[in-house]
Amino acid sequence: MAWFFNSKKTSKESAKKRLQLVLMHDRASINPQLLDKLKEELLQVIEKYVEIDTSGMEISLDGDKRTVALVANIPIKGTR
């Protein structure tokens, strides 16, 4: 319980976070570069139909158990 009172992050927490993130990419065979490219092209398509708030958007990999999902949160300003 020692780390509970310690505001400094323990190395186990970093280990867990880093692993969860890297495994998401490993499992989907999607590297960060590919995800960026996907994001860019996805935006181009969506922008043809709706006006979006690019500053508030978020596209990432998320997962539960051993399945991985592409999760996109794209705020819409209005229709074109």
């Binding site: 020692a2 780390w3 323990t10 190395s11 186990k12 867990k16 692993l19 158990k65």
Partner: peptide
């Protein structure tokens, strides 16, 4: 190490690998 928070414990590993 686990007590000090410097090693992943069994719950962490099981949660990550999900088997």
């Amino acid at each position: 190490l686990i007590k000090k928070g410097e090693m992943l414990d069994q719950e962490d590993v099981v949660e990550i690998l999900a088997i």
